[in-house]
Design a protein around this nucleic acid. Structure first.
Lengths: 253, 253
DNA sequence: CGATGTGAATCGGTTCACAGCG
DNA sequence: CGCTGTGAACCGATTCACATCG
């Protein structure tokens, strides 16, 4: 596993479980929706339903952040939005670069969920000289040659890789060398990075394969000599996802 | 969690853990690469490195599928590719529809990783009448009115939703009513579906927020009175991901 | 001998159920 | 009285370490 230190410096009591961190954005989204409808407070039950989890899990998650609720009443929406935002680090500005402006890169550049969450697309970068200068989502595409200077000048610490698989590791190396310490990888490759660099991946193909697995199972069960109903025992609406939940990648043009 | 049945019919000994299923596509990808380089066999150690996991986990995973290795030698690449493909249900053809042909939908339509894995884009569907007939990735975009007939005629059981958040639930309902039982959701909404329908989601914004959380932590540690080295204790290259690994969604144009 | 396959130990996360408090 | 907050039980997944066998 290589966890760096074996024991972790125990940065105060900051022991928020990874699984909880992964759900905070979900709660935040639900809370934001409530906030827009001017709902003042929510119970764990209601919020849980809106976020697609169960209430016990939600309460436990919030308990790691502190006691932000009021017994007998619920949670103050605005206050919770603030607390979660702060915890996630969304109260500050995060400049990001997107490398690889193919179909996917362009889709990401146009994605509205960025700005609203404290993320700012500092630059779009592509290796194709023909792309250079072309405006995508209101930003001119810059050439890969400028990668290092863009990172440095804008203090970018988060990079998004949306290049073909073959170019991903190389791009990753350059991003890291230039100072990026968090990478969101859409290319279908395993990136190797030095310790201290965080990588998350999204791979559409993998998601589909997992669906196919379950789909096959359903089909099999239907025509099973034993099996009762056509489709029972599958994944519940809850929205749960396999543990460890590897996320995989989409490949651009 | 609402697992439908409480005990599961125990479809023979088919007890492959969800976490293992989620990694099979990863192994498959690595194996395919080896196969293309005509490598005949691999050890658990080598394959694990290529897939970004540790070897004990990989061996345990494979043990759920059966004993496909040879002690003292390793695994036969071709044989394993076949076994995993079969297990995942990739030896059959899976027609899929993509609903919502914005930036993201187009990117998905152009994604090459589909065909190579047994997935076939049966149709691209969009609600905008102006899009109808326009060719995207070689296929003419069809209007939402045709959704039901397309699903039925092509026997589609897997649907991909790449619409704006507001339209997602409605599209989902129609897909399900028409017979779709697996959905890959890219819209940033919690979809509610009847039991027996599988939903997985991909949300870019959530992934970025998780990165921001860790990024913030790194920054904090650096200037910590106590903390030793600048950056220790973060996520290792291993590629691990938070359990439960909620996957989030990208929003199209 | 070397690498697989797997019980047993361990770990992290989820769920339960209820004490605590506004 | 109702809902939060949480210890404890539970459960699945990961890791360890070694017996097994080609």
């Amino acid at each position: 596993m290589a966890t760096g230190r074996t024991h972790r410096p125990a940065t105060r009591s900051r022991g928020i479980p990874e699984a909880t961190v992964a759900r905070l954005p979900l709660y935040l989204r639900a809370l934001t929706a409530l906030s827009e409808r001017s709902v003042p407070t929510v119970s764990s039950e209601e919020l849980a339903a809106a976020a697609g989890v169960n209430s016990a899990k939600l309460r436990k998650d919030f308990s790691y952040l502190g006691s932000y609720g009021t017994r007998g009443v619920g949670y103050d929406v605005e206050y919770l939005v603030y607390q979660i935002s702060r915890e996630l680090g969304l109260t500050q500005d995060w400049p990001v670069v997107i490398v690889g402006i193919g179909n996917l890169g362009a889709a990401l550049a146009n994605y509205g969920g960025f700005a609203s969450r404290g993320f700012r697309v500092a630059a779009l970068i592509d290796a194709d000289p023909a792309m250079a200068g072309k405006p995508v989502a209101g930003l001119p595409v810059r050439h890969t040659d400028e990668l290092e200077s863009i990172i440095t000048e804008n203090g970018v610490s988060i990079g998004v890789i949306a290049t073909p698989a073959g170019a991903a590791q190389q791009v990753c190396d350059r991003l890291v060398a230039a100072g990026v310490t968090s990478i969101l990888n859409f290319a279908p490759t395993v990136l190797s990075v030095p310790e201290g660099v965080d990588v998350r991946k999204v791979d559409l193909s993998i998601e589909l394969q997992i669906l196919a697995f379950h789909e096959q199972r359903k089909a099999g069960e239907e025509s099973m000599p034993s099996a009762g109903q056509p489709r029972a025992e599958v994944r519940a609406p809850e929205g749960g996802k396999g543990p460890d939940g590897e996320i995989p990648a989409v490949m651009p043009a």
